[in-house]
Design a protein around this nucleic acid. Structure first.
Lengths: 212, 212
DNA sequence: TTGCAAATGTGAGCTTTCCTCATCTTTTTG
DNA sequence: CAAAAAGATGAGGAAAGCTCACATTTGCAA
């Protein structure tokens, strides 16, 4: 599962030791990230060894550390790509909404899509369900929640101009963050219960969001 | 902050290598746990070194490993004690509820108490906000959610016998789990925003819980 | 083309931390 | 009181992250 269709965005989380400027090194960095992806899919990011990443990418350990200051930087780079992808999806889903009824449907679809993405992407699952030990990863999740929260808040404010902006912002932030928590919970349980949990989340959140 | 008033329950998470039966060893195990607590408070469980725990407890590394199969076992033991404590609190809070209005008040108080506990206990914060990388810890959190969810579901079923039991159970499980997620989020933000987030959570959940 | 500076690549091995085990000491028990 | 069981010790094995002194390749100006 080498190529993952996530584009070729360069990493920028925690200033890499060196930015790849030549074509050769850019390709090598992509190989490193592909190797890391494959290894995470196989056994999780915790079990991923830097030496294995280097070997699989056909690169020396020294090269690996030239572009990623430490192990978490590789994982953070992958996480950043997935984040960008899901932010884009969610943004698109919310963009055209013109009524509360449309919001309800859009939100419901969007959660289902997000859930399907979690289920389908082993790396995403691994990163968000396991490795939250890392501070940088935690900060990224928080930031992600803020971005998604803002998207949702903007829509709600647009549809309900009378609402208190601060309250809406807080609630939207919470709703999006709890969405991620719900995904984690759903994934950690049986498939059927997982779906029931996601449905319960949608129902609860939508009732609150649509209330006036 | 040596003694923490959490009682002297023995650990039982992942069968310790050896159970302390003599008085001497039981005291030593308590010293190990106190040392671990102090070190986690100082710099987090990630930075906690087994050699430091042993030294601070006035014990050899060998002894430490005689009672805790690995590093996570110490943390899991502490987590188990905090879990038992919070389960007890929450159980008490929900026990005497006889009406939906009382449930609303009890739930609100209970969440505030839980939040205060999170804020006051550095070790609890550390364990639940950081070290979720460990599978045993994740399983414990899930189990904790199930136990708390059952408590809440029992109360709701008692007050609304007409409700579908499965739906209530799923929802209660989700609500309790999202409660923990909310705590984590609140703790990760500024104190004032944290309180607003907790309030938003309470409002959202209660509206759903009290709906008929 | 050529030569040189900057960029890139290498991997042996240093460091840190978890954890084991052979051996010794203390306590309990028949 | 002697044997057996429980408890205690700490040097050192092992694994993985990461460094650094040195080798190679590339881009570019003369």
């Amino acid at each position: 599962m080498g190529e993952n269709g996530l584009g070729t965005m360069t990493h920028s989380v925690l200033a890499a030791r060196r930015m790849p400027t030549q074509k050769r090194s850019r390709e090598r960095v992509e190989r490193m990230l592909s190797a890391a992806t494959a290894l995470i899919e196989k056994a999780g990011s915790d079990a991923m060894k830097m030496s294995e990443v280097a070997e699989r990418a056909g690169v020396s350990i020294g090269s690996l550390y030239q572009y990623f200051p430490d192990k978490t930087a590789i994982i953070a780079t992958l996480a950043e790509r997935y984040n960008a992808m899901s932010c884009h999806c969610i943004g698109q889903g919310l963009a055209g909404v013109q009524s509360m009824a449309a919001l309800r449907d859009a939100f419901s679809d969007l959660i289902d899509t997000y859930y399907a993405m979690f289920l389908a992407e082993p790396v995403m699952r691994d990163i968000w369900s396991g490795t939250q030990a890392d501070k940088a990863l935690c900060a990224m999740e928080l930031e992600q929640g803020r971005v998604l929260g803002k998207m949702l808040a903007d829509v709600v404010i647009r549809l309900k101009p009378a609402a208190e902006a601060d309250d809406v912002a807080t609630k939207a932030f919470l709703v999006m963050h709890l969405g991620e928590a719900t995904m984690r919970l759903a994934i950690a349980t049986e498939r059927k219960e997982g779906q029931a949990i996601v449905d319960a989340y949608k129902q609860m959140v939508l009732a609150d969001l649509l209330a006036d």
